[in-house]
Design a protein around this nucleic acid. Structure first.
Lengths: 235, 235
DNA sequence: ATAATCAATATTTTCGAAAAAACTAGATTC
DNA sequence: GAATCTAGTTTTTTCGAAAATATTGATTAT
């Protein structure tokens, strides 16, 4: 059965689970979300499911087809490129602001989150990038870089874009023939940020663009320009 | 009763109506959204209401308080400033992209929407800025400027920020002691855009910032830094 | 006096059934 | 053969009641 913190709703728990299943590709892009199957999967009623789906529609993770139900948002090359463009804009700005406004605690948190990520890499070995825990620490590191930007709105927008991009990255992981030495790149970015160097902004933008270029190189064949496959739920 | 296009849902109609009521301040900022009152107002069941509210939470127009229901998103000086900062970033970027990518049709559409707005102003007289129809045409003009940016994601984010900012503008309208000659400004921006002058980007940024400065000057007293008034629904 | 407890009431959340709409397959028409 | 119609079935949406939770005011304890 579902677990929820006191004062929170079953619905918000389901929302989080569905979000994770979509971002983690357990619910594959384009999948038609049938209520009977969802009810079996999440063990809640249709109305509760609809509420979570409504939220996810607004987050662009699910598309609503009027009276014909819902589907997991598709993936496409166009969307990935657009997403990347938006991310470069947002990430560069929040990083610029953070370097302007960040204090010692911000710096300390960057170092701490880098350390955690690095330690995790050491422990996991060569294919650390396939690990969900590492992915979480990776996300935390990038968030730490920009945490001090002072703009809740930009941070929220950034977070959604980050998650959506992460879905593409995750989908491409299994096809990776070669992996960039990200740890070197992450360290260089961190040092530039801690130095408050304007070069850090250029580096983060390049980091993001290059990730997309690699995703397209290794897994571009999985994405179409109007990918709308409906393949049913992988349950 | 509710009217809905074929294939669409009652729920999506309610969503649109609630969104309009929030953005138009008929549902005042901070208002606790009680289900019995909402049911009377919109004539649909709790579950349908909850679905619309879930969407609006994700759009930052409504806040969810766990098991204690929903409320219209509050307004505050911090939020307005943050919103403005985000808008300047987004608007400048989509305008820059549009000038890069726009074609003749884009230009023609700008001229047409400017003309409609101007004609409306002529007809409405001195206080045109209080008119809802003008506000719609004003929004259409600004959208036309950036329509050719080629980024659905940036356009969607821009649209949400625009609407949220418009709520503040609307709230300040009634307190206006003086109104900037916006028609001159709009025309100057349009001409700079049509010339594809980089100056247009600076102008749009200034236009937005100045609007906020004026909103704060005339109506800043209405906003607090942590405005969380719950005053009930104005029905 | 203030703080804690408790019961009654109000409100919110979730459920599952009814109503509405979409889908499918077979029959009929051109 | 393709297009249209129809009835039955499936799926989705909406409804309203039951279950769960929060709120409120009275009572008791310190």
């Amino acid at each position: 059965m579902t677990l929820k913190p006191k004062g929170e709703t079953v619905g918000s728990d389901i929302l989080q689970r569905m979000r994770e299943d979509i971002l983690g590709c357990t619910l594959a892009p384009g999948t038609k979300l049938r209520f009977e199957a969802l009810r079996t999967r999440y063990d809640v009623s249709f109305s509760t499911l609809r509420e979570a789906l409504a939220r996810l529609v607004a987050e662009s993770l699910v598309v609503a087809h009027g009276q014909r139900g819902f589907a997991v948002a598709p993936v496409s090359l166009d969307d990935l490129r657009d997403l990347t463009q938006a991310r470069v804009l947002l990430e560069c700005e929040v990083l610029r602001l953070a370097m302007e406004r960040g204090n010692d605690d911000w710096e300390a948190n960057i170092l701490a989150s880098y350390h955690r990520m690095e330690r995790s890499q050491d422990r996991l070995g060569q294919h650390y990038y396939l690990d969900a825990k590492w992915s979480t620490l990776h996300g935390a590191f990038h968030l730490a870089l920009v945490q001090a930007c002072g703009s809740p709105i930009l941070l929220e927008m950034r977070a959604q874009l980050y998650d959506r991009a992460n879905r593409y990255r995750r989908m491409s992981s299994q096809f990776r023939k070669k992996w960039r030495p990200k740890e070197i790149e992450h360290k260089a970015i961190m040092n530039a940020v801690l130095d408050r160097s304007p070069e850090a902004v250029t580096m983060i933008g390049g980091h993001i663009q290059e990730t997309t270029d690699n995703v397209i190189e290794f897994a571009g064949h999985m994405f179409t320009d109007a990918a709308e496959d409906s393949t049913g739920i992988a349950v």
